[in-house]
């Protein structure tokens, strides 16, 4: 418990330092000025998102192969944290795009694929909410996660093939060929800090899911015993405990 508290405090300090570095230490960008500073967290959240979805995808395959519930818990944690990072990326993106490109959104390959990715994994979370049976929930959502992961490269490829005839503001808007050395150091720090936050949240969420599973099993046991002793005196107390 103490170690967890210490780690959380450390990560909080790290993300604070990263925020400070991005806002005050990194040099001003030549054309975009202060707005460009969102870049450090925008890129970092995408990076964290890919890691989280990779964890989720790996855990889904592992669940189907081994059938162990802990992989399912890791899978859902990965998707939830990934959706969180994806939402941050989808919010910071337009905030940066509006002053720089003059538009909030463009149906470019990267943007579209991320949007579809976000929709697919929201659907994954919905699916989990709507299936009652825990075993079914785990295996069906793992199958869906694998289908969704297979779909993402296809979405990207389709959008690349389709829209590349049009001018792409994104290419000019990217970090370009050369980053200022201080900038790249700050970026590395931010990547690392956001990655740590992601891992911290992921591990906590994973633990929570395991506890939830345990609680559900215990509740199930209480209920089944309560039914057995339906004529006994202890039933009201047990039912109270179940609620």
């Amino acid at each position: 418990m103490k170690a967890r508290f210490a780690i959380t405090a450390l990560v909080a300090l790290l993300i604070f330092c990263a925020g400070y570095a991005a806002l005050f230490i990194a040099p001003d960008e030549a054309t975009m000025h202060a707005v460009q500073r969102i870049f450090y967290f925008h890129v970092a959240s995408w990076n964290a998102m890919f890691c989280a979805f990779f964890v989720a995808c790996y855990a889904s395959v592992a669940y189907l192969v081994t059938g162990k519930r802990k992989w399912d818990a890791l899978g859902v944690s990965g998707v939830e944290v990934g959706v969180m990072c994806c939402t941050i990326g989808l919010i910071t993106g337009p905030l940066w795009a509006r002053p720089v490109w003059g538009i909030w959104w463009t149906w470019d390959a990267k943007l579209t694929s991320t949007f579809i990715l976000w929709l697919l994994f929201i659907a994954y979370l919905l699916l989990r909410g709507l299936v009652e049976d825990p075993e079914k929930k785990a295996s069906l959502s793992a199958v869906f996660a694998i289908f969704a992961s297979l779909d993402i490269p296809l979405v990207y490829l389709a959008n690349r093939l389709w829209r590349t005839q049009h001018p792409q503001p994104v290419i000019a808007g990217g970090p370009g060929s050369g980053l200022d050395p201080t900038m790249s150091k700050v970026l590395l720090l931010c990547l690392f800090a956001v990655f740590c936050v992601m891992i911290l949240v992921l591990v906590d969420r994973y633990r929570l899911e395991l506890l939830r599973n345990e609680a559900a099993e215990l509740r199930y046991e209480i209920e089944s015993r309560g039914l057995d002793a339906s004529n006994g005196q202890e039933t009201p107390a047990l039912q109270k405990g179940a609620q």
């Binding site: 579809i116 779909d151 979405v155 389709a158």
Partner: peptide, 8 residues
């Protein structure tokens, strides 16, 4: 579930 997957 299906429609986002079918975009490509």
């Amino acid at each position: 579930l299906l429609l986002p997957l079918l975009t490509p």
